[in-house]
Amino acid sequence: MDRLPVSLQTLYADMVDRSWSGSYAELIEAGGAPYRQTIGGREFWYLKMPMVNGVRKKDLYLGPDSSEVQARLHQHHDLKAVRGERLAMIRSLRAARLPGPDPLSGKIMSTLAEAGAFRLRAVVVGSAAFQTYSPMLGVRFDNTAGQTGDLDIAQFHSISLAVDDAIEQDLLTTLQRADERFRAIPSPMDGRRTLRYAIRVGNQEEFAVDLLCPLRGPERGSITELKAMKSDAQLLRYLDFLIYGEINAVALYGLGVPINVPAPERYAVHKLIVSRMRIETAESQAKARKDIRQAEALLEVLLEDRPYELEAVWTEAMDRGPNWRSKLLEGVAMLKKPVIKAMQERMKLQLS
Rank of each mutant, 00 (worst) to 15 (best):
H157K: 15
K80N: 14
R18A: 11
S275H: 00
I223M: 14
E265S: 01
A122S: 04
R97E: 14
R216I: 13
I199F: 04
Y24I: 07
L172Q: 02
G126D: 01
E316Q: 12
P5N: 11
P50R: 06
A295Y: 00
P101F: 12
R216Q: 14
K348V: 13
A96I: 00
F118N: 01
G84T: 08
S21I: 01
E26R: 12
A251N: 01
Q350C: 15
K48S: 12
Y12I: 01
D179M: 14
F241Y: 04
T194A: 09
Y61K: 03
E330V: 09
L252M: 11
G245L: 15
D14W: 00
V269A: 03
E85M: 14
L236V: 05
D179P: 13
V123K: 02
F182C: 06
E311K: 15
L329V: 03
I292C: 06
G321K: 07
P322D: 15
A129L: 00
P218Y: 09
A166F: 07
L255Y: 04
L195Q: 04
P99S: 10
P64N: 06
G32Y: 10
Q176V: 14
A30G: 06
R91M: 10
Q234N: 13
E246N: 13
R266T: 05
K230N: 07
A129I: 00
S92Y: 04
D170P: 03
E246C: 12
E219H: 12
L73S: 01
A81L: 15
L255R: 01
R86M: 13
F241E: 00
D319G: 15
K348N: 13
L195D: 04
K58Y: 10
T194W: 02
G41R: 11
H76T: 15
A282L: 13
F118V: 01
A113H: 02
G245P: 05
G100I: 09
D78T: 09
Y244L: 15
I39Q: 10
W45C: 05
R83N: 14
G116I: 07
M189V: 12
K287I: 11
N323G: 14
L328S: 04
L47F: 11
Y308C: 09
P188M: 08
E265Q: 05
P307F: 08
R121M: 11
E219Y: 12
K271F: 09
T194G: 06
K57R: 15
Q234M: 12
P218K: 10
V6K: 12
I108M: 06
T38W: 11
G22N: 11
H270D: 01
E180S: 14
P186N: 06
Y46V: 03
L151C: 06
P135W: 02
L104R: 04
H157M: 13
M109I: 02
K230G: 02
S92K: 12
A33H: 11
Y24D: 02
I247C: 06
S158H: 13
